[in-house]
Each structure stands twice: as structure tokens, then as C-alpha cells.
Amino acid sequence: MSIESNKQELTELIYQLADDDFIHAHRGSEWLGLAPHIEEDVAFSSINQDTMGHATMYYRILSELGEGKADDLSHLRKKEQFRNAIILEEKNGTGEYLDSPNYDWAFTVIRHLFYDVAKKIRLESLKQSSYEPLADAARKMLTEQYYHLLHWKIWFKQLMTSTEEARDRMETAIKRVWKDFGGVLTLGPHAEKMVSAGLIEDEAALRERFIDQIQELFNEVNYSIDNEPLMIRGDGRNGEHTEDLEHALKTLSEVYVSDPQATGW
């Protein structure tokens, strides 16, 4: 791989990784102070910090590739420039984080579990990436991934095997996340070039691993699903996004854009 001739697929891939982590951590951070249980609130926040930290590492790599300042990349790009999967931008619930949020814990557990399973598979593959800074970042991130997965697996198993109400809510959440989780599993329009440049393994292999691992988790709690994860609302890797992302970007950049003369915060 040479940076010059593979620049586009390289940056496209890193934008996907960075934006996935960034938006996912943003949604997680909105829960701060509102989790079902104080002890869980503290634990969940660590996971969000780790994930936001990973996004920061990716934005720095992009920065080194000449894409601009990490803070500008995360706070100034337009909706269409984001490469995250649509399922990750979806709001946590019907309300706003400051006012009757009405957040859905079952949805959060499922989205986080699925994401962390997929992320671990992706990181394992990136360890072999032909782009060394990416391989190096992946190795570092993997050390934190074990705890994230452990945490969400326990929540998943326990809620799936507790009350009928919890089981119902969890099954509804699985179906909801499943319909768009394909968006996380895809590498987007530049997939082939990414693979031929040795940046990451091909989409089908990663996807198969994901389905196997989820199937295993489902088996443990006597659950099964027929179809494969879909991408019904569009491909975020292609710049397709929903109002929820627009809204999130407005919130998270509110202060950063509020004083164009400011050089530091």
C-alpha cells in the first residue's frame, strides 16, 4: 500500500471508524446521570470515554494525513461528510437529554452490545492492516474492548432471562437495531479498494464472524432471528444520514462554532 495512491480509501476507512466511535460515544454520553442505577451510570460513562478516546485517536491519524485539525474534523463537518452508520446516530429515545429524555435502556444495551461485538472483530482485522498507524491504534484500542464486551454481554444475558417485560423490550430492541445494523457491517462504496490495499479484510468475512458471534449469544438465551442484519434507512458510509445526525451535530458543535475568532477553549 502506498499512501499516495491509496489515500482516498485509506481516509474513507478511517472516517468510518472515527465517525462510528464518535457518534456512538456521543449518544452514550447523553445517558450520563440518567442510567437505571448509579453504579451503572459510572461504569457506562467509562465505556463512553474510552470510545470517544478511540474516535480522537482516529481523528488524529486523519490529521496527520493532512485532513485538518482533529477538532475541526469532529465538530465542523457537514452531515453529508460523516461516514458513520445510521443506526449509531439514532436518538436514545423520544425526548431530549435535558428534558424528559424517555431513553430506552433495552435499545441502548442492544445497540452497544452489537456495536462492541462488531468493533472487536474490526479491530482484530485492523491489527494486520497495511497502514501501520492504524494497526498500532487497533492494538491499543483492543485492550479496552474486552471490558466493554463483558459489560454489555452481562446486561444482555440478564435482561433476556429476567422478567417477561424485559424480554419483550429486549426483543423489540433487537428487531429494531437489526434492521439497520447492516450499516455498521458495510465498508461502503470504496470497500474493494480498501481490501486490495490490505487495509482491512473483506466485508463478507467480517460480517460472517459477526453473525456467528451474535448467533452464539442468541443461543445462550434461547433466541433466534431469521434474516440477516439490514440497512433499510440507507448507507451512512455514502453520506446518507437522518435528521437525528443533523440534530446531534448541532448540539455537539454548539460551543465550538459559537465564537469563530476563538483559538482556544
Binding site: L32, S45, Q49, A70, H75, A248, L252, V255, W265
Partner: peptide
Amino acid sequence: KEWVPKAPTLHRKLAIMAKVQDEM
């Protein structure tokens, strides 16, 4: 917490998350 998602930079976002987490 109102300022956690709005914190102006990546570093500030991380730090204020850690700070509010400590308060919890």
C-alpha cells in the same frame, strides 16, 4: 451534564465526561 455533549473540543468532551462521572 448539560455541557457534556456540547463541550467545545474532543479533549474537553473527554474531561468533562470524566468529571461528571466522578460526581456520580
